[in-house]
Simulated assay, not measured.
Amino acid sequence: MNHWINIKLPIPKWLNTWAIGIPETLPDANQRMSLVIDLARMSIKNGGGPFGAAVFNQHTGELIAPGVNWVVPGKSSLLHAEVMALVLAEQTLGSYELASHGSFELVTSVEPCCQCLGVLLWAGVASVVCGAHSEDAQAIGFNEGPRSMHWEQELKQRGVSVTREVMRPQAVEVLQSYTGEIYNSQLQVSNRSG
């Protein structure tokens, strides 16, 4: 029988040096999204997926934690950009729940998939800001999973504000530039169920 040890989720080594020179606060939604889109570009450049995310203090614009899609290099389906940003923010604040430490915003280059929707609810963010639509990710082959057609309204009913299409053309451009592995495509899902 195997003996399991603590779970360790790898983050890219470059992520710790990436933030050097970035302003401490980014008060404007476009500045925040620009940073997240840059993270998605850096992720592709370094072998990751075409998604970026970050957690910010909603009122001050302070960057709490970045995240990139590191599923393939990190060998874990958990390593979506939103999940990484939320986990690193929780570790930074020393809590499994962000709402008790203030009001935080998750900025993501693409609307959250089914996994990330669940995680952001439990993490306690007050706001979600999205760039590209999930259909934009699906157009290059990614499967976003079973999400309610009313996900935006459902988040709002739970007190999470949603802003969509912030710098969407730039976010879509990053998606369309991706030539790496599509690890959860529609085809792979249908092959497994057969």
Rank of each mutant, 00 (worst) to 15 (best):
V68L: 13
S127L: 09
S134A: 10
L106N: 02
D136L: 01
C114L: 04
I140H: 15
N143P: 05
K45D: 11
N46A: 07
V107M: 06
P112W: 05
Q91W: 12
F56S: 03
A132P: 09
N143A: 13
G118W: 00
V119R: 06
L98E: 02
L120V: 08
L106S: 04
N46F: 06
F142R: 14
F51Q: 11
E62S: 03
N57D: 09
N69W: 08
T60E: 00
Q91D: 14
G52Y: 11
F51S: 14
K45E: 15
P112M: 09
V71M: 13
G61W: 01
L106W: 00
L86R: 02
A126R: 08
A126P: 01
V71A: 11
Q91I: 10
V83T: 15
S109C: 12
I64P: 00
P73Q: 04
S95L: 04
L86M: 14
S95E: 12
H80D: 11
L117K: 05
T108Y: 05
G74R: 09
V72T: 12
C114V: 13
Q115I: 08
A137H: 14
F51I: 13
Q115G: 06
C130G: 07
V125W: 00
W70G: 10
L93K: 02
S100Y: 06
K75E: 11
A132S: 08
A99K: 12
E97D: 01
V125S: 03
I140R: 15
E90Q: 14
V128I: 09
A132C: 09
E105M: 10
G48V: 08
C130F: 07
A81G: 09
M84A: 13
V129F: 02
A53G: 11
L93A: 05
S127M: 11
Q91L: 12
